[in-house]
């Protein structure tokens, strides 16, 4: 048995097929509703037990980049089940 499953997948938005959504899901511990609104903040670490792993800046950097591009990045999570991180990419006609 594997320790878990991580999936990377891309799909079109249900309502607007100019919007591509890219998601990464895991079957990990999930994020508590209290922590969820804060996880894109600098140095915010929900999982204090594993707080020594990362720098606490990865999601803040991702958020900053997506905001500058005018795209969305968000997370859905259920404790004990896992999390899904998603960002949007809006297709635009190529500029010659």
């Amino acid at each position: 048995m594997p320790n878990g499953i991580i999936s990377l997948f891309a799909y079109l938005d249900d309502h607007d097929d100019h919007i591509i959504k890219v998601s990464v899901s895991d079957t990990g511990t999930g994020i508590s509703p209290d922590d969820l609104p804060h996880i894109f903040e600098r140095f915010y670490k929900a999982d204090k037990a594993h707080a020594t792993q990362g720098t606490g800046l990865g999601l803040a950097i991702a958020f900053e980049i997506m905001q500058r591009l005018g795209e969305k990045i968000y997370v859905e999570s259920q404790e004990g089940k896992g999390s899904i991180f998603t960002f949007t990419l809006t297709r635009k006609p190529a500029v010659a």
Binding site: N3, I5, I6, S7, L8, F9, A10, Y11, L12, I20
Partner: peptide
């Protein structure tokens, strides 16, 4: 990431944009 995940015995699956 498939390689990195395998080191931790995690399955990595990838579904491209249809």
């Amino acid at each position: 990431y498939t390689v990195l995940a395998a080191e931790k015995n995690i399955t990595f699956s990838f579904s491209p944009l249809p």
